[in-house]
Computed example of a mutant assay.
Amino acid sequence: MAVFERMGGADWQVIGDVLEVSARTAQVRLAMAETAFRELLSPERGPGAGEAGRLRAYMAREPLEVALDLDDWVLRHEDGDSGLGTTPVSGGLVRRGPGRHT
């Protein structure tokens, strides 16, 4: 969640406060994860550039849309007896409101 919050503009002080560590400690612990995620968002520079890189970047930018697409796929391919409901993939996702730093 810290990387998500950083992508949303939270500074290291906010992240540190939530984790109950100093801003510097939060940065040391999480900066590499943030950098790796930002590289995923860059399909031309990230690992597996090209079509696979563009797909990973899209999935990282639009996780809810991807989950809804997966709901559709699962429901098209189920046998009708599974009892998956209408949201077999996205139904388990927890949406956080703006300003929540958890």
Score class of each variant (00 low, 15 high):
Gly16Trp: 11
Thr87Lys: 10
Trp73Lys: 09
Arg56Cys: 03
Val28Lys: 04
Ser42Thr: 12
Ala2Asn: 01
Arg29His: 12
Leu41Ala: 02
Trp73Pro: 11
His101Ile: 01
Ser82Pro: 11
Thr35Ala: 12
Leu55Arg: 14
Ala26Thr: 01
Arg56Thr: 07
Leu84Glu: 01
Ala52Thr: 10
Gly91Arg: 10
Val21His: 07
Val74Ala: 06
Arg95Ala: 14
Thr86Asp: 11
Ala2Gly: 12
Pro98Asn: 07
His77Arg: 11
Leu84Lys: 10
Val66Gln: 08
Val3Tyr: 11
Met59Val: 02
Ser90Thr: 08
Thr102Asp: 08
Trp12Gln: 12
Leu93Gln: 05
Asp17Gly: 07
Gly91Glu: 00
Met59Lys: 01
Ala57Pro: 15
Ala36Val: 13
Leu64Tyr: 10
Pro63Thr: 03
Val14Asn: 03
Ala23Pro: 06
Met7His: 15
Arg61Thr: 02
Ala31Pro: 00
Glu39Gln: 14
Val66Pro: 08
Asp71Asn: 09
Glu39Gly: 07
Ala49Thr: 15
Ser90Leu: 04
Arg24Ser: 13
Val14Thr: 15
Leu75Arg: 08
Ala31Thr: 00
Leu19Pro: 01
Gly92Leu: 02
Ala49Tyr: 14
Gly99Leu: 00
Leu30Phe: 09
Ala26Phe: 12
Ala2Tyr: 00
Gly99Arg: 01
Pro98Gln: 06
Arg96Val: 04
Glu62Thr: 15
Gly80Glu: 01
Asp81Val: 09
His77Ile: 05
Val3Gln: 02
Leu30Asn: 14
Thr86Glu: 09
Ala57Phe: 09
